[in-house]
Design a protein around this nucleic acid. Structure first.
Lengths: 164, 164
DNA sequence: AGCAAACATTTTATGTTTAAAATATTGATC
DNA sequence: GATCAATATTTTAAACATAAAATGTTTGCT
């Protein structure tokens, strides 16, 4: 095991110099935080359930839609490329956690759903996942939570504008 | 959770339940936001300077340390694995943007620095980068900015505790 | 019907990222 | 001074990610 950054955590954010702008400082802190949590969740999923974050993510999307989703839907919701979804889905299918069946009336598309085994497996994982996230983010007050949610919504809108 | 009584009050149960959902919602929003910005910056760096985000990040770490950094320092500060830094540094070195020289007194380590060309190149990119970040995050009020910075610092601490 | 454009997915090539094993060096201890 | 653990880096294998080309399918248009 390599165990990076286990000791004294020197990261993006703590090395920022005074000359850097407010926005950059916020961005680096945002990035650091997200990376830390993502790394933690990835490690937990791996050690507890021997699954990767992208595979968990795909299953989570399906768990919200009992009717199933097409590959394209998954690509959109997971915000990754179609080719990527193909690969991840192929693995989950080979493990028997999802199934891909033809859609009647459209022979281009597949309808992807969780198998019975996939549902059971996901239920276990989701409970643990929720607890891990709560450990990381549960310490915020209601007010802090509200501020964060509002600010993030605004940021999301602004990035959308910029991309246009 | 403590769960002292045999019959748990419904509102306590549901409060916990709700709290957990809250944390997950915040996490998903945080992740989405960060990914959106990261994707934007990655695209801009690619189209404007034909460089990837990890390469830019490595150069940014070096730009802050005129004395240079070892590969291990870089790994820690970039929060990526050592093997990853090896690959990225090899590319930047072959492009003449960084140099890696032996450290006197420690034949294991390398001292990595920006070359003259690397400094010039980074200066250009950093200016554009700051503007792109400001486009995404500059719309927040001072108060919102402060709330975000405080909340993120707390989250960072909590994740650190959890990892221990 | 014929044909072109759009759609849904997979394949391919390339590159990033990680974990783990491998290599080599250093320092401490006996 | 021999040995062993810690350190610094590279290499390897597997998973993930993207863009772009390829493969089929559907729809609309004439």
């Amino acid at each position: 095991m390599e165990s990076i950054g286990v000791q004294e955590p020197i990261d993006h954010e703590s090395r920022v110099e005074q000359g850097d702008h407010k926005a950059v400082r916020l961005w680096l802190r945002l990035l650091t935080c997200t990376n830390l949590i993502e790394r933690h969740l990835r490690g937990q999923l791996r050690s507890e359930f021997d699954i990767t974050l992208p595979r968990f993510d795909l299953m989570a999307q399906l768990a919200r839609e009992s009717e199933g989703l097409t590959m394209g839907d998954l690509s959109q919701r997971m915000m990754v490329s179609g080719g990527n979804v193909s690969g991840i889905a192929a693995q989950l299918e080979s493990e028997g956690l999802i199934s891909r069946e033809p859609v009647q009336g459209n022979r281009r598309a597949f309808c992807v759903t969780l198998t019975r085994a996939g549902q059971a497996r996901f239920a276990e994982m989701a409970e643990a996942h929720e607890a891990w996230v709560a450990e990381c983010l549960g310490g915020l007050s209601d007010s802090e939570y509200g501020h964060m949610m509002r600010a993030l919504r605004q940021i999301k809108l602004e990035v959308g504008e910029v991309e246009r």
